[in-house]
Design a protein around this nucleic acid. Structure first.
Length: 329
RNA sequence: AGGCCAGUAGCUCCAACGGAUAGAGCACCGGACUCCAAAUCCGGGUGAUGGGGGUUCGAAUCCCUCCUGGCCUGCCA
């Protein structure tokens, strides 16, 4: 079975954009692939963060992932910092990665601009650690959003360079682009994100979700109730496509274009569909939280298994690099 | 380790003579209008001027110190 790797940062609050764009796909992919998923807490260190919240955020993120269906029966789910071999490999990859490549990364440039007061090496090295995450498991596929394509390309280049210079140990990982359309934030402008506060949290109260959805930006050309709308210019409709059945979508598209329904009607239907899908997740989160030991157990077991794989890769890498080995035999 | 520069609202800041209530743009919040939003209009500053100490009747402003960041020099596997 081909192997998949992907990671998510412990932001503390997972939103429906994360869910439909990544997590739900991750669950689906467990059917056909050997999947390794990771809460990438080391990556989260590259920007300033509240130190006293990191552990909780990481745990909460893991709980949501399990509640969404990334159970130990289906995949390995662990915390990045629990497998230190990732960083060892990242160091080695550093030594085959041109600085210019990293300076050219659009995410780096963007974040360096945003966090002008803290442009650290980790921020620039982010994609290299990512490459190490993937390649230490020799994963061949990486389900990520469009914004990560450039990083995965770098992973391929790093693999190619290492393979050529030392020994062909690594596959060149391929992106699996999410089938889900890119959901924008409630402002209808930018990607849904916690920092922009334009998100609907997966675990938010129904009341809050409705308030946010009710005031979400729609097709700005549709001013009056009797104006026909254009669903393809409407972010609410885009979110619909992530949550609603084909039949309902066709119905809404037709009724929106003919002004049979208004945006509020459309939003109500979407609200119901969202709740229908995420309510069970919220319930499972509550269940899981009653037994946190289980979560630790899951994370630990996975980390141990992953560490076995990671150590094997590291051994091969060290040998390929020509380092002196003190191991017997 | 040393030198120079900087730190003011969520963000960007060339507002503010040692003087009264610390400003602008954007963002944000409330209201009107909307099927809901958007746009527009009306209303709101949301801040311990990086921390601490000092001088002064009075400090964002002057002095000391610490912290953070930038640039430079030195040292270093």
């Amino acid at each position: 079975m081909k192997r998949i790797f992907s990671g998510i940062q412990p932001t503390g609050e997972i939103h429906i954009g994360n869910y439909v764009g990544a997590i739900r796909e991750w669950v689906r992919l467990t059917e056909d692939y050997d999947c390794i998923y990771c809460v990438v807490d080391f990556h989260a260190l590259t920007v300033e963060y509240p130190v006293d919240e990191m552990a909780k955020r990481t745990l909460d993120t893991a709980i949501v992932l399990i509640a969404c269906g990334l159970t130990p029966e289906k995949c390995k789910l662990f915390i990045q910092s629990a497998v230190p071999e990732h960083t060892e490999l990242a160091w080695i990859f550093n030594c085959v990665t041109p600085v210019g490549d990293l300076e050219r990364m659009t995410q780096f440039k963007e974040k360096a601009r945003q966090h002008r007061g803290n442009v650290n090496m980790g921020l620039m090295d982010y994609p290299v650690l990512q490459a190490a995450d993937i390649l230490i498991y020799k994963a061949e596929f990486v389900p990520v959003g469009e914004d990560q394509i450039q990083h995965i390309e770098l992973s391929r280049e790093i693999a190619r360079k290492f393979n050529g210079r030392f020994k062909p140990l690594f596959p060149e990982p391929q992106v699996i682009l999410s089938r889900a359309p890119r959901i924008l934030g409630l402002d209808g402008k930018s990607k849904m994100s916690k920092s922009l506060n334009n998100y609907i949290g997966l675990l938010e109260e129904e009341r809050t979700i409705w308030e946010k959805l009710r005031t979400a930006v729609t097709d700005t050309n549709r001013v009056r109730r009797y104006d026909p709308g254009n669903p393809h210019l409407c972010n609410v409709f885009t979110i619909h496509t992530a949550f609603s059945e084909k039949g309902l979508l066709e119905e809404i598209e037709r009724d929106c274009r003919s002004a049979r329904i208004g945006c509020i009607d459309c939003k109500r239907m979407l609200f119901e569909r969202i709740i229908e899908e995420i309510a069970p997740i919220r319930e499972r989160v509550e269940e899981i939280k009653k037994n946190v030991d289980y979560v630790f157990e899951v994370l630990n077991t996975s980390a141990l298994k992953c560490r076995e794989i990671a150590k094997r890769t590291i051994d091969e890498v060290r040998e390929a690099l020509g380092l002196l080995s003190l191991k017997k035999g």
